[in-house]
Every structure is written in structure tokens, then in C-alpha cells.
Design a protein around this nucleic acid. Structure first.
Length: 671
RNA sequence: GCGCCCAUAGCUCAGCUGGAUAGAGCAACGGACUUCUAAUCCGUAGGUCGGUGGUUCGAAUCCACCUGGGCGUGCCA
């Protein structure tokens, strides 16, 4: 049962005698600010009082008079300026626990009007190795797809792969010039990625040589800025008249300036490293001088591919599946699946048609040789065809939208893409209307940048990036250190064999990374700190997983060899037939938390905000830990107390497991 | 120049679309293991929510301006 929604309906009735627009006020239901105020509160009386010219306490009293909630709540109380405090009857909590126990959906209602929703997420460039930057779209998109599915929406996930760009020009060039067909045939994935790396290295080398000179000036300018800021900060530090707040501000300025210097230094360092790596290697230097026009040559290979050159097309067809294998290995490990993987290449032959169509609608303008669409309210146009005739990602996006409309007839499309592409999506969405797609709801589910531990953005262009796979390995191996802590292993009965240990490490390690991403608000930038996310304490997946494992541990003991599924049926039956009772406040708090599961899921859906569910699961796990500490389940003399507690433990386990699964995170039966 | 986002405890972050005394996790300090997993729990300390005005019965939240930070900004995606 979704209590705020129920209450809202009841308040509409109570408000009707007082106002013409009850719905403006009925929704002002919040969980109580403090347990002493009850479980929920309505704030409707205060704003309404002004409108009707009464005191807010009088209005509150009147609302209470009109309100019919005695089936669910104790007598409502008016407090403070006119808050209406509502406390659930224990019997309602008991009923709710029972109902949730008997429900596969643990009480979360299903939509009666399913919409077709396409979730477009992940979209990496194949052939390039995946790195940390790819994690957000993948993990958030997967979570949203799971959430909507859980609600009963008709969800369709699509991975819009970058499988048609320059990266294939790079591989083709590398294969032509440095490749050994026999080796590639025998061992395609590592060979192709080695060829990509080699060719890319030569390109980066040329680029680095060009840009390294101009960096010195930027550096010295930044350095002098940083020095000035540092001096100001130091001076302020010893100034006793200055407020701590101002000191902090100056300190932060100095830090930001220092960070900028560090960023430029890091860029220079990485440029020099790229140059040195080639210069110090006789063979590479030779290749570099022989292939000094490699950047242009790669573009030529790409252009040939796009023009339909038979040989390049054949190579592309040969290489693509191997590149996909590489990416799929990571998806398997992350347990992420797609209904469709329609990459850029799929839309290639539709692009010219898009331009023609827009032109026939009179929307395009030729400007500096490029075909543009100028949109009202935007300074810059959307360019759909370059001067050289090539198409751009805007063109592909339009073609994709048309295809999806014709093929899938979606009600809504979610684009889970970096905030930095916000302007592109604004333009893109603005074009949906003239293209006759105004009825499809298009949403840019944007997300913030992933920052390094030093606080600067992890950008694709700069420095060496942490490969996604090595990051997963790292998290899993650290999780294993903890899982296989000998002191803990010694307490396991039956003992944990190596296979189980490895399984748990995988579940914990991968869960840690996903949770770290999902628990931050989607739109904020966040600092990616491997140490912290696998720290296995605080607000982490591990804490929640551990709480789940503890519920299962108690149930295993309680079942006494009977087998868990059978035993859980016994608990369900008992909950349905025998009276429950609360004897400790932590029991009631836990019951209330469990009942709010639907509210948390709803938040994810309404705001596309997985962090709401993370917060809920963490709170629930904490509440369970406190319960666990204060309320012994087994060996309790009073059968009704034990029954109630077993029901709570069982339901906690199910809610945590279901909640984590909506996040795309697995659980272990013991840890 | 223009546009978008951000500024909350020492650090990392929440704050449910305007509500009661601003929260959590780390880090710090003090307690709790003969009992269902101490990967835990209980407690203490830590804040002028960047600043100034405004709207409101009521503002971290909405508006304006200011300061500082980040990102984007016509032929990459």
C-alpha cells in the first residue's frame, strides 16, 4: 500500500468543503520529520489558511474533523502552526506485512496502463576499450529499465553502438599496414585491439608533437594565477579578523587554481610520455616517420568505408563481431542486457534520406557549405551534413528517432547520456515537432561527469584512462581480500569453499562499483574513488548485501534443515493466520520502513533517480541492523513475538533483495 | 561574449519539487562481542546551507543580483 497516495485521496475529500481546488493541497503529505510526530504529516492547513482567512490551526482542526482515516490511523493530532500528524495503527502494519509477504511484488503495485518506453543507454564506441566514463550511462540506464519493467511498463532497451566511426578507420589502417592476417584470424580480439592501440598511438604521437609547444604558455599563466591565489589564502589564514567562511573560500580558490595547474601539468606529462614512448623505441620511431600522415590516412579509410568501398566494408564486417564480443564480455559481467543493439552503422543508409526530408520540409539552410537547420532560440545551428558531404551524429540521431517511431511506436524515449550533451538534445528535441513526432515524449536523462580522486574530470582526451575491466578486476580482488579474511572464514559453518568465495567476491565487487555510481544523484558530478567504494563500509552495496545475508542466516537456522523455501511458506502462513505483536520500537520502525518500499521505487520512476532507492535500501538495512541488535528472533518464549520477528526478517530479506535487483545488483546468501 | 550546471560538517555526499530543531557516511572521540555474522550496534563532537536582497505565515529549496567553480558553445560524438 502506498500510504501517501491513499492519504492524498482522503485529504481531497476532507478539503472539499474548504476549497475549490483540493488537489492543490491534498498532496502535501510527507513522512513525519520526527518519530514523535507520528509516521506521516499533512502540511495542507498552513497555505490554505491564508486563502480562506482563518488561522492555520483552525483550518487544521477543521480538516481533522472532515478527515476519514480511522481505518488506518490513530486519531490525528494538530501540532505547531497547523501540522496534522498521523500515526499508523499497528494493525495496519501487521496487515501490510502479511500482504507483502504473500505478494511476489512485495507490495509494489503494477501499472494498469503500460506505456512503451525505449531506454537508450550505454552506447560505447566499439573497438575502443571501455573506460570509467562508460559506467554511468550503462548502470543508470540498466537500473531505469529494470525499474520501469518492474512497474509493468513495456520497456525496450537499445544500445546505440558507435560502430561506424573513425575507430574502424583506425583498425582498418592498422590491419592494412601492421597486421598479420594469420595472427588476427587465430586470435582476433587481442590482435585487433593491439592494432587499434598501435595505430592510435601513432596518431596521438603526431597530435602530441603539435600541441606540446603551446602548453608551456598555458602552464606559466596558470602557475602565476595559482601563486597569487595561494598567497591570498595564506595571508587570510593568519588574519584573525577574517571569518572562517571567507578563509575557506579563499582556500578553495587556491585549491582550484592549483588543480588547474596540476591538470595542465598532467596533460603535458601525458603528451611527453606519448612522445617519449615512440621516440625511445627505434621501431616505433621508424613507423612514426613512415606514417607521418596517419591521422589523415585513417580518415580516408573511414571515408572509404562510408562510401561503400568493398574491401573496407568486408574488413568491417569481419572485425565488428569480435569488437562486440569484447564489449559483451563486460556486459555479461555487469549483468546488463539489451533487447536491441542497433548501432550507428544500422542507420547509415538512411542518413541521406533524413537530409532530403528536412530539406523538402524547407527546414535546412546551406551555410559555409554545410547543411544546417537553424532553430529558434539557439545561437548555433544543428549541422546535419558537413561541407565534405559526411553526416554527423545529429543526423544519425534523427534517423534513429524516425526508425524507432515507425518500428516500435514508443510513447517515451529515454536518452541516458552525459549532461554535456544537453544542448544537442535541446536542439534535437526541438526538431521532433516539425518532423511530426511531437507525440513521443523525449527525455534526456542526463548525468554528471565522473571525476578522478584529484577532483578533475576524467576526460577521454587526456592522460591514460583506467580501463573498465581492470577496474572491475580491482574491485573484485579487493572484495575477495575481505570475503576471505581468515578470521571471518573460520566462523563459517559449513566452511566456504574457494568457488563460493570467488562467487561472493564477484557479487560484492561488482555491486560496489554499481552502487557507488547509483547512490549519487544522477545529475551531480561525483568523485570516483576506488578505495572508498570497495571500502565495504558505510553507504555501500556491501552493507546492504551483508544485511541481506544476515536475514538469510537467521532463516536458515530457524528452518532447522527444513529447506528455506518451504520454511518461508510456513512463515507466510503464520503471518496470515496468527496474531502479531510489537514489543520493541525497533520492530515497528522496521515494519514501517518495509512498507515504504513502494514509495522509494516510485521516486526512481518519477525522477529517473536511482539514488532514491539506494538511500531507501541503506536506511532499511540500518533499521534492520538496529532491530537485529535489539530484537532476538530465535529461542523466544512468546510464539507471537517470534512469529512477528520471523515475518519481519523474511520480508526484510525480500525487500533488500528485490531492491538491489532493481538496481541491477546481486546478493549472496551468506557473506 | 552567450548558454547550462554547481557552491550544505574537516572530507565525500543526501535533502523527497516551500514545512517543525538542516541529515548520512567516512575521518575524530567514548562505549558494547560466553547468545541468530562486530562487514555490526549505541553514544559524543562537528554547520551563518558561498554572499546580499526579494517573494512567503515559513526558504538550503523559488526569484534577482553578486562572488567563486565546472561544463558547453557551427562542420567530433
Amino acid at each position: 500500500m502506498h500510504l501517501p497516495n491513499v492519504l492524498q485521496a482522503r485529504f481531497v475529500q476532507a478539503l472539499e468543503p474548504l476549497t475549490d481546488s483540493p488537489s492543490d493541497y491534498a498532496g502535501m503529505i510527507r513522512p513525519a520529520a520526527d518519530p514523535k510526530f507520528g509516521d506521516y504529516q499533512s502540511n495542507a492547513a498552513m497555505p490554505l489558511a491564508k486563502r480562506v482567512g482563518k488561522t492555520s490551526r483552525d483550518v487544521a482542526a477543521e480538516l481533522v474533523q472532515n478527515l476519514n482515516v480511522t481505518d488506518l490511523f490513530e486519531e490525528p493530532e494538530v501540532a505547531g502552526p497547523g501540522f496534522i500528524n498521523l500515526r499508523l495503527k499497528d494493525s495496519v502494519l501487521f496487515d501490510s506485512i502479511q500482504q507483502m509477504l504473500l505478494d511476489e511484488r512485495v507490495g509494489v503495485s503494477k501499472t494498469t496502463d503500460p506505456k512503451k518506453v525505449i531506454v537508450d543507454f550505454s552506447s560505447p564506441n566499439v573497438a575502443k576499450p571501455m573506460h570509467v566514463g562508460h559506467i554511468r550511462s550503462t548502470v543508470i540506464g540498466d537500473c531505469l529499465a529494470r525499474t520501469l519493467r518492474f512497474y509493468g511498463e513495456d520497456v525496450l532497451t537499445d544500445n546505440h553502438l558507435g560502430d561506424w566511426g573513425t575507430q574502424f578507420g583506425i583498425i582498418i589502417y592498422g590491419y592494412r599496414n601492421f597486421g598479420d592476417p594469420a595472427k588476427v584470424a587465430a586470435n582476433p580480439v587481442p590482435e585487433l585491439s593491439a592494432l587499434y592501440r598501435l595505430t592510435n598511438q601513432l596518431i596521438e604521437y603526431q597530435k602530441a608533437k603539435q600541441s606540446v609547444a603551446t602548453m608551456a604558455d598555458k602552464l606559466s599563466a596558470a602557475k602565476s594565477d595559482a601563486e597569487t591565489a595561494k598567497e591570498a589564502s595564506d595571508q587570510a589564514e593568519s588574519d584573525e579578523d577574517l571569518k572562517p567562511k571567507d578563509k575557506k573560500k579563499l582556500r578553495k580558490n587556491a585549491e582550484a587554481a592549483t588543480r588547474r595547474v596540476a591538470a595542465i601539468e598532467a596533460d603535458i606529462k601525458s603528451l611527453k610520455a606519448k612522445i617519449d614512448a615512440v621516440d625511445s623505441d627505434a621501431e616505433l620511431s621508424k613507423l612514426a616517420s613512415e606514417h607521418s600522415d596517419v591521422d589523415l590516412a585513417v580518415l580516408r579509410e573511414t571515408a572509404k568505408l562510408h562510401e561503400g568501398d568493398a574491401e573496407n566494408l568486408a574488413l568491417w564486417k569481419e572485425f565488428l563481431p569480435h569488437c562486440q564480443d569484447e564489449i559483451n564480455r563486460i556486459y555479461d559481467r555487469l549483468n546488463v542486457q539489451f533487447d536491441y543493439t542497433l548501432g550507428e552503422s544500422f542507420y547509415h543508409d538512411r542518413l541521406a534520406g533524413v537530409v532530403e526530408h528536412l530539406t523538402s520540409l524547407g527546414l535546412t539552410t546551406k551555410s559555409d557549405g554545410a547543411i544546417c537547420v537553424f532553430l529558434e532560440g539557439f545561437d548555433s545551428p544543428m549541422i546535419i551534413q558537413k561541407r565534405d558531404g559526411a553526416f554527423l551524429y545529429a543526423t544519425t540521431d534523427l534517423a534513429t528517432l524516425q526508425y524507432r517511431r515507425d518500428e516500435f511506436h514508443p510513447d517515451e524515449i529515454l536518452y541516458v547520456v552525459d549532461s554535456r550533451q544537453g544542448e544537442h538534445f535541446k536542439k534535437f528535441f526541438a526538431m521532433a515537432e516539425p518532423l511530426g513526432m511531437g507525440e513521443v515524449q523525449l527525455v534526456h536523462v542526463n548525468f554528471g561527469t565522473v571525476l578522478g580522486p584529484d577532483g578533475r574530470p576524467m576526460k577521454t582526451r587526456s592522460g591514460s584512462l583506467i580501463g573498465l575491466e581492470s577496474l572491475l578486476d580491482d574491485a573484485v580482488s579487493r572484495a575477495k581480500d575481505v570475503v576471505c579474511n581468515p578470521d571471518r572464514l573460520a566462523t563459517m559453518d559449513p566452511p566456504m569453499d574457494g568457488e563460493e568465495q570467488q562467487q561472493i567476491a564477484e557479487i560484492v565487487g561488482i555491486g560496489a562499483i554499481k552502487y557507488a555510481d547509483l547512490s549519487h544523484h544522477r545529475t551531480s558530478d561525483y568523485k570516483f574513488d576506488v578505495d572508498k567504494m570497495v571500502a565495504l563500509e558505510g553507504n555501500t552495496a556491501t552493507y546492504v548485501q551483508y544485511s541481506y545475508a544476515r536475514t538469510q542466516s537467521i532463516l536458515r537456522r530457524a528452518s532447522d534443515g527444513e529447506g528455506l523455501p518451504a520454511f518461508e511458506q510456513v512463515i507466510e502462513q503464520a503471518a496470515a493466520t496468527q496474531p502479531m505483536t510489537f514489543t520493541h520500537p525497533n520492530e515497528r520502525s522496521l515494519a514501517l520502513m518495509l512498507m515504504r518500499f513502494e514509495e522509494a521505487i516510485e521516486q526512481v520512476r518519477l525522477n529517473y533517480a536511482p539514488n532514491a532507492l539506494c538511500d531507501y535500501l541503506f536506511e532499511t538495512a540500518k533499521t534492520y541492523s538496529s532491530f537485529n541488535e535489539s530484537c532476538r528472533v530465535l529461542g523466544n518464549d512468546d510464539p507471537s513475538v517470534m512469529q512477528t520477528r520471523l515475518a519481519l526478517v523474511t520480508l526484510t530479506g525480500r525487500v533488500l533483495k528485490k531492491g538491489l535487483s532493481v538496481l541491477g545488483i546481486d546478493v549472496a546468501e551468506r557473506m
